[in-house]
Design a binder for these strands. Sequence first.
DNA 1: TAAATTACTCTATCTGTCAAAGTAATTTTT
DNA 2: AAAAATTACTTTGACAGATAGAGTAATTTA
Lengths: 111, 111
Amino acid sequence: MISSDIIRGHLDSIILKLIIEKDRYGYEISNEISTRTNNRFQIKEATLYAVFHRLENKELIESYIGDVTHGRKRKYYKITSLGKAYYNEKIKEWQIIKEIINLFLEGSENE
Amino acid sequence: MISSDIIRGHLDSIILKLIIEKDRYGYEISNEISTRTNNRFQIKEATLYAVFHRLENKELIESYIGDVTHGRKRKYYKITSLGKAYYNEKIKEWQIIKEIINLFLEGSENE
DNA sequence: TAAATTACTCTATCTGTCAAAGTAATTTTT
DNA sequence: AAAAATTACTTTGACAGATAGAGTAATTTA
């Protein structure tokens, strides 16, 4: 399983990405992450909603209550233009981080 | 500058890598990281020593006081076999993480 | 001998992730 | 219709890693 320290700092980006594709609600995002990663990563519920609130406070996403339900009312999130810009920055940052970490974590294994 | 959340979880690996190459002391490691990353990343002093103590507690490294000095006595660190094994695990983990994050942070930018 | 340099330590704070327990609304079962 | 199951979101509190900042220690240089 993937440790929280390793994924830390990337969750905002992952969730923004999914919301950029289309408006989505919590459970949907949670399931989508599990599916796309072949269950190699599942976001924890508490974490997911913590991310939503953080992103909403930063005005990177906006929420509205949806009409279609199969249980409790769904809260949908949509991206803001600030959110798109932020996501694009994160893509660039990821390229740099990859390079840097590869400097130390690539190459032959050590006996 | 690289955010602490992004690098979090990789610092142990980076430092282990440098100690695997040869026995090293704090300042040396700090400088080596700056050099290799072209100053794109500098480890903070407090962080560096926090990592040393964490790794030593986990018995991934061992320390001894060196003789050559140019100021305060240097504390050298050497890798243990547990440390090497741990590092090799971290290499594998990094490959997986890269794949997963790439799923969400690659591809065309969004307008 | 005072200042500069090299090197390590300690404490306190902040932030993101997460477990656990709870609330809310709708559908299915008995 | 009441109870149970399901879907979905919220809140609280704990924990660990990164870091600022201040301090300590030992040696060299001015």
